[in-house]
Design a protein around this nucleic acid. Sequence first.
DNA 1: ACGCTAACTGGCCGACCGGTCAATTAAACG
DNA 2: CGTTTAATTGACCGGTCGGCCAGTTAGCGT
Lengths: 205, 205
Amino acid sequence: MKNTTPSPAGTRDPELTRSRILQAATELFVEQGYSAVSMSQVAKAAEVTKSLIHHHFGSKERLWEAVKERAFEHYFVEQMAMGERVGEPDADFLRDSVTAYFRFLKDNPTVVRLFAWAHLEEDAACGEMDRSLVEAGAKWIRQAQQRGALRDDVNPTHVIASFVMTCTQWFEARSHHAHWPGIGDDEAFLEDYLKIFMEGMTPRQ
Amino acid sequence: MKNTTPSPAGTRDPELTRSRILQAATELFVEQGYSAVSMSQVAKAAEVTKSLIHHHFGSKERLWEAVKERAFEHYFVEQMAMGERVGEPDADFLRDSVTAYFRFLKDNPTVVRLFAWAHLEEDAACGEMDRSLVEAGAKWIRQAQQRGALRDDVNPTHVIASFVMTCTQWFEARSHHAHWPGIGDDEAFLEDYLKIFMEGMTPRQ
DNA sequence: ACGCTAACTGGCCGACCGGTCAATTAAACG
DNA sequence: CGTTTAATTGACCGGTCGGCCAGTTAGCGT
């Protein structure tokens, strides 16, 4: 049981150092992307030497990987937790899931931006990561379809893809549509989107 | 009337040079983003000297602006043309518009990726650009709503935002969902998305 | 034919890049 | 306690960065 946070001014704490570096790197990478950030910038922001970063992470690229891995794991864990408390395969639960996903992205702009950077560098890791989540979600939707709770003439994976992508893009491309005439805030958009999406997923009589 | 393309081997043609540079820069920037691309790389790809790029474009940043401006103008012109042939304010025309937008993005991956880069650097220009397009689209939707052709309890701007974002993200984040189990190809996804979206936009009886 | 303008070149600049290395020093362990 | 291990430092590396500048050269108006 060692003391971590106190740090008797001049003491060494490799774990805290690692996380300080990781934190500084995350903030910079999230904002500017991999290539625009220099090791010296990270070092300065984390208040350590450049060499120390190399000591702990090996290279700039591995630091970048560590940053992404940490954020995506956070995403994965949260989504898994969300998947745990799975409810009845009905329309209400679908609505709740979309809402929860939307709110998660809203509360985790870091994840949103890292996803965007990862997409641009064709990093397949994030897609592989939520494979199982999508699979589980699709299975759940199929159940709801068989039950007659959701329309059954659409591919369950496409259902997930469509709402995941809409939520993601809403936050990724904020700067794009933020000044569109008549656009509302997060909640107003979510409300309208849910109206369209849920109505679209309701089985015909 | 000067000859442009022939180029008697050793002749000067500033306009062609400019466009050669712009083309090379576009390809590189689209692929790797602003900061990952160096002026020497562009120079090599365009088969000109670095100094010549500076002569024509002033700086790396202005070259980047020129690249984006060119692509976004292409987008704008195409969308304007699409807006010209506006049809009846009914559901069918909405479906056709979504389809056309989806196909445009599919055929113009350069625009898609430049949008993504622009979003990440919070470039508001692309949003300002299609302000008027969105305004016109929203007006059209409002007409359809008043006519009873589309459900009228949703913000028209949100309707546009929702399908624009879905289409955009489908192509921007291809690497993300491309390997999801059960996901279909472009046309299969579009078909399912249209089912949900159009049904969601249909007025209740 | 001549001169001007602008396209175009090559060489160079200081700054900074990611990364290495040997030396210092604090903590962990016996 | 001494020894070992690893956290940490600062000096330093070759290479590349974006950009500048002085000079050359082609086209164009007169």
